[in-house]
Design a protein around this nucleic acid. Structure first.
Lengths: 245, 245
DNA sequence: ATTGTCACTTTGTCATGACATTCGCAGGTT
DNA sequence: AACCTGCGAATGTCATGACAAAGTGACAAT
């Protein structure tokens, strides 16, 4: 019921107050300071406690709700969810995801060339069929074990890159430093089985299951700047999501 | 740039204003009234036009951003995204998803029994291992072609059901009428290959790829009320998501 | 014992006002 | 011609205030 949370807010920081509060609460929930089923104080009192207005407090709670950490009920209050929460999918690309988990990863560029856009790629990137695009195939390994076979297409007017820069920083980082700022991605997850070539590269047997992911990334102008078709070893990767009403 | 949108708001309706506006705009975008790349009016003027306050207008825009329909840039404005947008994943269960698309579907209950909870199920439903749960296996077909093999577990204290009610309305509808109100679900999507039994039921060959989905649904109290392990034919089903910064 | 009513609490919705931050552009300076 | 500066425009953040709707529990009436 009551919580002796110690949250210090920095009003001069460029990071918004609602985000500071939400992050602090998220951490408190994840590290057990606020155990599952805990009933939080009401919004008004919480806002008062942190010297915030209620809209700001609500904005923080909204974020927690969207991330699947708490549940709100009108007339009742806000509770920490009962089931353990997995970390959610983000628009950060696999590279960041793994890096933050402290794993040692390596990316090998298998191929980098300019090709005419296929009908599928042209449609996803809003180009004309046959227009030239950069095509890169990479193999990503974690702890020296292959994990993902990634195929991506980028229009030349978005950015140009080389094998070296690609292997070093990950595609998204590279594009970001080239001035592209991602805002959004549409993503489709499915399944397939490995053919002989894919199996050899990924270190599995032909016919083993693979998770497929097709992603189209959009920049802040709403234009498609990159699309990709990725294959993951099904025994070592899956996609988590939280759905909220 | 300018838009001659005809949106009529019903201030006496129980559905919130921001939702009315967001739905109207979403439809305008999907049906082409607001084509891709269109620059919307600024928030202030839009709010004025609909006789709304700016926070309410912003709340509507927020929803469009989360659904991946528009992109906002500070100092610039709001644009409809350039790439075609697929409809997003919702907490509605497959039954509703397909029903709204007008397909003819049939659900066959293959098995319905009470079993002791396995370690995995117990953890997902926050029960003790060995505690009794209802276990149901269903085969869902669309247009007489099998699509999904679904295995679900529900604690007895949540709801009781029979083969008839299950086949009729879908699991989520059934639980809803039993007084359960879903708020949230955690979901993991992966891949596997069909074994002989699964292949026979789904009408594919042994070794064909399947999309796997493990979902745990929570009610408004944040307690787990249902979990499931589903298998979908990879050639006929996949999961779409929109990721937003 | 059941039902209905009422008060209270808490979240949901909406309005108004203010200032900060960022982007794009025009115009002037070097 | 290139660079810098300042201005306007648009979204981002935050505060205050108010009422609505829904759940909970106590109490009274049937």
């Amino acid at each position: 019921m009551s919580d002796q949370l110690e949250i210090t807010l920095d009003r001069s920081s460029p990071v918004p107050l609602y985000h500071q509060v939400a992050s602090a609460l998220e951490q408190a929930i994840r590290d057990g300071t606020l155990p599952p089923e805990t009933k939080l104080e009401n919004e008004i009192d919480l806002a008062k406690r942190f010297n915030l207005s209620r809209p700001t407090m609500r904005q923080a709670m909204d974020q927690l709700v969207r991330d699947g950490l708490v549940v709100r009920r009108r007339g009742v209050g806000t509770q920490v969810v009962g089931a353990p929460v997995r970390r959610n999918l983000r628009l950060s690309s696999l590279y960041d995801d793994l890096q933050t988990e402290g794993a040692v990863q390596r990316t090998e560029v298998l191929s980098l060339e300019r090709v005419p856009a296929s009908a599928d790629v042209a449609e996803r990137l809003q180009l004309r069929v046959g227009e030239e695009v950069q095509h890169v195939v990479r193999l990503r390994s974690v702890d020296e074990r292959p994990l993902a076979l990634m195929e991506n297409w980028v229009p030349p007017h978005v950015a140009e890159f080389s094998r070296e820069t690609l292997a070093a920083g990950g595609l998204y980082n590279l594009l970001r430093t080239a001035g592209v700022d991602f805002r959004m991605a549409h993503q489709r997850v499915g399944a397939d089985v490995a053919d002989a070539r894919q199996a050899k590269l990924l270190g599995v047997e032909t016919g083993d299951p693979l998770v497929t992911m097709d992603r189209t990334a959009l920049d802040s102008g709403g234009r498609a700047v990159e699309c990709g078709h990725h294959l993951y070893r099904a025994d070592r990767y899956s996609f988590d999501t939280t759905l909220v009403n």
